[in-house]
């Protein structure tokens, strides 16, 4: 285990060292101490590293991750795991707004609550939130899965494309073109897999599925007068 003191050695040094590791590295295990809410911790990693951040982080922690496993032992500021490609990011506490935004792949697990716009414009990432998500979550979500074990705020899935949303608790309101959909056996299987990967012991049957009514994103000739 390599230990990096962020307060002492600075952010650029951390990200440079982590970027310098390739797939063959034997320095795979890293611990970052004294994060003190700093921005852009462990961004752009592209090797199968395991990074543990010992405390809360600021903006854009673990952004653009490709293949690394990053754990935040605290809460994360805005934009955690933004545009993740693969790998996994675990936040032990809460996550601020737009967690997992635009993510193409990988798994983001938030053990507390996520704030507004969780999974905005997600493009294939899987996001599992143990608690609640705030308003406008999964806005324009294109692909991937968002699992919410608690409640969802206003306008869930507004202008959604083909992402799947699973919510166990209440949904304050659904956004434009987002509807509740039938939970078929294949969805139960997908959800079960996600819950297992996120280490969550919840029953898939307790969740409801939401997705696109597909009325908004295709051009409809009957609406031509509105343009």
């Amino acid at each position: 285990m390599q230990t990096y003191d962020l307060a002492e050695k600075g952010l650029r040094g951390l990200n440079s060292i982590l970027h310098a590791q390739d797939e063959e590295t034997n320095q795979t295990s890293w611990e970052v101490v004294n994060p003190r809410g700093s921005h852009a911790i462990a961004v752009g990693l592209d090797a199968p590293l395991e990074v543990i951040v010992k405390g809360s982080t600021g903006y854009y922690c673990a952004g653009m991750n490709q293949g690394a496993t990053i754990t935040v032992e605290g809460s994360a500021g805005p934009g955690v795991a933004e545009n993740m490609m693969s790998g996994s990011v675990v936040v032990e506490g809460d996550a601020s707004q737009y967690a997992g935004a635009t993510g193409h792949g990988g798994l983001l697990v938030i053990k507390g609550n996520a704030s507004s716009r969780c999974g905005i414009s997600m493009k294939g990432i899987d996001i599992v939130v143990h608690g609640n998500v705030g308003h406008m979550s999964a806005f324009m979500a294109q692909a991937g899965n968002l699992v919410v074990c608690g409640d969802a705020g206003d306008a869930l899935g507004d202008s959604i494309y083909e992402a799947r949303l699973f919510v166990r608790g209440s949904v304050k309101s659904l956004g434009a073109d987002c509807v509740e959909k039938e939970m078929r056996p294949e969805h139960v299987d997908i959800l079960k897999g996600l819950l297992d990967r996120a280490d969550l012991h919840a029953r898939p049957e307790e969740f409801r599925r939401y997705g696109s009514a597909r009325k908004l994103y295709n051009f409809d000739v009957d609406n031509v007068a509105d343009y």
Partner: peptide, 22 residues
């Protein structure tokens, strides 16, 4: 505005930290 602003306060590690609702 950010958690960074709070990190030097006494006992912040054990404080209740949250975001105000809109």
């Amino acid at each position: 505005s950010e958690y960074r602003a709070l990190v030097s306060l006494p006992g912040i590690e054990d404080a209740s930290v949250w975001e105000p609702e809109p």
